[in-house]
């Protein structure tokens, strides 16, 4: 339904612009607050035009939060999550779409159902596993009596332990499994004509060769779309790093650091809330995701609407 009348045009533009304003106002207020002094930001009424303290505030917030190493940490984790998610989603969807094995639909639906189990829902068991990634195996050994058997036979008590707390691995691995990505890839792989698969077989390309030479180049836009979404998702992680990282000096993430600057009972201790610093830090933390979205935008949109000509 495409209608073009002047009144409708004006109306739709009004709706669009009001949506834009609603989104932009908080960001503008954050920017304004970041440019004020402590006194100005805490005085009523709320200032609506920027002051001249932006650079000063940025530097103070940066130093206060120790953002240098924290940015590097977060970049490592976000990149790890993105690479892991894309690799895993790609090979999972590859197996589900191009191989005919028993129970592949069951497996697909099991993956799909995990969409309903985000990290927040399963945070306690996930933490337990992160504390000792081998504990499920230990449980199996104990339950089957195998560990007891080994202990009596060899005299060695079996205690499997692999601690992921306070490590990049622990930050990355639980975030890597992705139903969304697998689904996106599956939908894309389903659009690949059978003829193309068969042509590759006639040309002598095995499955991995086909994946590498044909599927991956063809799914560039999907990779870009997935990478963008997942980078933002990983960058904004708060709960998980907060939970498993106690060694904040070495493994702190920017969003967790940022939350320390946001004034509350704990941080101000009754002092004047430092909103100007919190907002300055917010601006800095926002930059990498925005940069990624802008850089990837062209690919991103094409990947989601799935029409690479």
């Amino acid at each position: 339904m495409i209608e073009r009348t002047p009144i409708l045009n004006i109306l739709t533009h009004l709706i669009l612009i009001s949506g834009l304003v609603i989104i932009l106002i908080p960001i503008w207020l954050a920017f304004v607050a970041a440019t004020q002094t402590l006194q100005a930001v805490n005085s009523a009424p709320v200032e609506f035009w920027p002051g001249d303290q932006l650079w000063v505030n940025l530097r103070e917030a940066w130093a206060l939060s120790d953002f240098g190493p924290k940015f590097i940490n977060t970049l490592i984790v976000a990149t790890g999550v993105v690479v892991g998610k894309i690799t895993l989603a790609c090979i999972t969807a590859f197996a589900i779409v191009f191989f005919n094995f028993r129970g592949r639909m069951v497996i697909f639906w099991m993956i799909f159902i995990t969409l309903m189990l985000p990290l927040e829902v399963r945070i306690v068991p996930t933490y337990a596993v992160a504390a000792n990634a081998l504990s499920p195996f230990q449980t199996i050994l104990d339950a089957t009596g195998l560990s007891g058997l080994i202990a009596t036979l060899s005299g060695v008590e079996v205690r499997l332990e692999w601690n992921l707390l306070n490590s990049y691995t622990g930050l990355i691995l639980p975030l890597v499994a992705t139903a969304t990505g697998t689904f996106l890839y599956r939908q894309f792989f389903l659009t690949i004509p059978d003829d193309l698969v068969e042509a590759a077989r006639m040309d002598g390309a095995g499955p991995l060769r086909f994946l590498w030479d044909v599927l991956i180049p063809l799914s560039r836009t999907n990779i870009a779309a997935l990478a963008t979404i997942m980078f933002v998702y990983a960058w904004n992680q708060y709960l998980w790093p907060l939970l498993i990282i106690t060694d904040r000096a070495n493994y702190g993430m920017v969003v967790v650091q940022l939350s320390d600057l946001v004034p509350d009972q704990l941080t101000t201790g009754g002092g004047t809330p430092t909103w100007h610093l919190a907002m300055a830090a917010t601006l800095v933390v926002m930059l990498p995701p925005i940069a990624v979205v802008i850089l990837m935008q062209r690919w991103f949109v094409r990947g989601l609407i799935n029409t690479d000509k």
């Binding site: 004509p193 003829d195 193309l196 590759a200 006639m202 040309d203 390309a205 060769r209 180049p217 063809l218």
Partner: peptide, 26 residues
């Protein structure tokens, strides 16, 4: 055997030369 398909089944991301030479590359 070599096969010519109804819908050509060319690799859309490869050039003509790459398409023709893919079997040799493999």
């Amino acid at each position: 055997c070599a096969m010519v398909f109804q819908n050509y089944a060319l690799y859309p991301h490869m050039t003509v030369a790459e398409n023709i030479g893919y079997a040799l590359k493999v």
